[in-house]
């Protein structure tokens, strides 16, 4: 997806209209990150809800 320069993970979460409290853990390029992490070109972002099935 296209984003403005300087956008953070939180901006993406808002753009995707995901309730922020449902995002429990965030990875950027395979590294643990948070909502304040600033994104760059070609970053790969993953956010996860709570998961606990077994």
């Amino acid at each position: 997806m296209e984003i403005q320069p300087g956008s953070t993970v939180r901006d993406i979460i808002h753009n995707l209209k995901i309730p922020e409290e449902e995002v429990k853990i965030i990875f950027v390029n395979g590294q643990s990150a948070d909502t304040e992490t600033v994104l760059h070109d070609h970053d790969r972002v993953g956010f996860f809800p709570a998961i606990g099935g077994g």
Partner: peptide, 22 residues
């Protein structure tokens, strides 16, 4: 060690498996 505890925050109903099954 660092742990994946953040995946387990919230109430039982918030677990994605409740909606998605397994």
């Amino acid at each position: 060690d660092r742990s994946p505890e953040s995946f387990w925050q919230g109430s039982l109903e918030q677990g994605a498996e409740q909606v998605l099954g397994t």
